[in-house]
Write a protein that binds this DNA or RNA. Structure first.
Length: 264
DNA sequence: ACCCCTGTTCGGCG
DNA sequence: CCGCCGAACAGGGG
C-alpha cells in the first residue's frame, strides 16, 4: 500500500520505541531487502543503542539511533512496519526485527521490493540527502512543477506524476486521484498541457497530499468519500462526479483509471 | 492454472 | 548522451 501518506502512518508506528534501547537485532540472511547493506555492521552497531527519532521523505524513511547510527527503510510494494510483543517470533517475511525490552520493532515485506539501509557516521547518510522538495513544502511550487514538466515533455503526464524526483511520494493511486481532480487525461503528453492545466495539476497535487496526510497519514482513516480511490479498483467503478463508468488502461506502465467524461 | 498488483531499476532502442 | 518503455524482481491473492 505504501505511498507517502501510508508511509507516514507506518513510520509513526515505531514511535512507541523512541527513547528505548535495542537489545537484539534479527535479520533473515541473504534477503533481497538488504541488497547493498552491510548486515553485520547493522547488527553490531544497533545493539545497545537507543531509537531517537525518525523522518519521512516521499516514500523513504530514516530512523536515527544514538551513537551516530542511521537506518533507512523503503516499503516497496508490500512493505509494512509494526510493533510486536517483546518475545515476537519472526515469520517468513519479517526480515528485520529490532528487539527492545518491552516490544519488538518489525519490518515485513512479502515481495521484497522494499529496502533496508544502514549508515554509521556523524552526519546524515548520503542516500538520505536529496534536492527534491517535499510536496507539502513551499519549495514545491508552480515554477518547480512547470520546470519538471518541461523536462519530460514527451512522457504521458501519468508517468511524470509517478517520477519520484519531481512528485516525491506519489504512487499509483495518488497519481490517478490527482489527475482525476485536475480533470486531465492521464495520457496527455506533459509538453501539451496548457498553463491552466499545469496550475490545476499543481493545486490538486498539494490538496491530495494534504488530505491524504490528514486522514490515512494520521490514523489510517479513509480519504473523503467522494474520492476516486473508492471506485478505481471496482470492476464497475464509476466517476464520483456524475457516475460515468471509469475507463481503465495501462499508461506510463501502470494500471490507470480515469473518467472519460471529465478527463480530457 | 493464470493473471493481477499502491515500486524501482536496468537494458534496449530511437 | 538523453529519455521513454517494457521487463524483471518475488510472492500472495482473486
Amino acid at each position: 500500500m505504501p505511498e507517502l501518506a501510508e508511509v507516514e502512518w507506518y513510520r509513526k508506528q515505531w514511535n512507541a520505541g523512541i527513547g528505548n534501547k535495542i537489545v537484539d537485532v534479527r535479520m533473515h540472511p541473504r534477503n533481497r531487502v538488504f541488497r547493498g547493506t552491510n548486515m553485520r555492521k547493522l547488527q553490531e552497531n544497533l545493539a545497545g543503542e537507543k531509537l531517537r527519532r525518525s523522518a519521512a521523505r516521499g516514500k523513504r524513511m530514516l530512523f536515527e539511533f544514538s551513537g551516530d547510527n542511521w537506518l533507512g527503510l523503503h516499503l516497496g510494494m508490500t512493505g509494512k512496519i509494526h510493533i510486536a510483543v517483546a518475545n515476537f517470533r519472526p515469520d517468513k517475511h519479517d526480515h528485520l526485527v529490532l528487539y527492545q525490552r518491552e516490544r519488538a520493532l518489525v519490518f515485513t515485506d512479502s515481495r521484497q521490493f522494499g529496502r533496508v539501509r544502514f549508515h554509521y557516521g556523524r552526519h546524515q547518510p548520503g542516500w538520505w540527502t536529496s534536492d527534491v522538495p517535499e510536496i507539502i513544502s513551499p519549495e514545491f511550487d508552480q515554477k518547480f512543477v512547470d520546470q519538471f514538466l518541461d523536462r519530460h515533455r514527451k512522457a504521458p503526464i501519468k508517468a511524470v506524476v509517478l517520477m519520484q524526483n519531481g512528485f516525491s511520494g506519489i504512487g499509483n493511486w495518488m497519481a490517478d486521484e490527482i489527475l482525476w481532480r485536475a480533470r486531465i487525461h492521464p495520457a496527455t503528453r506533459a509538453g501539451e498541457m496548457t498553463a491552466r492545466k499545469r496550475e490545476k495539476l499543481f493545486r490538486e497535487t498539494k490538496l491530495v497530499v494534504r488530505e491524504s496526510l490528514r486522514t490515512l497519514g494520521k490514523d489510517y482513516s479513509d480519504p473523503p468519500r467522494t474520492w476516486l480511490i473508492h471506485q478505481k479498483w471496482k470492476p464497475d467503478g464509476i466517476c464520483p462526479r456524475h457516475r460515468t463508468p471509469l475507463r481503465r488502461a495501462t499508461i506510463g506502465g501502470r494500471t490507470t483509471a480515469w473518467c472519460p467524461r471529465c478527463q480530457r
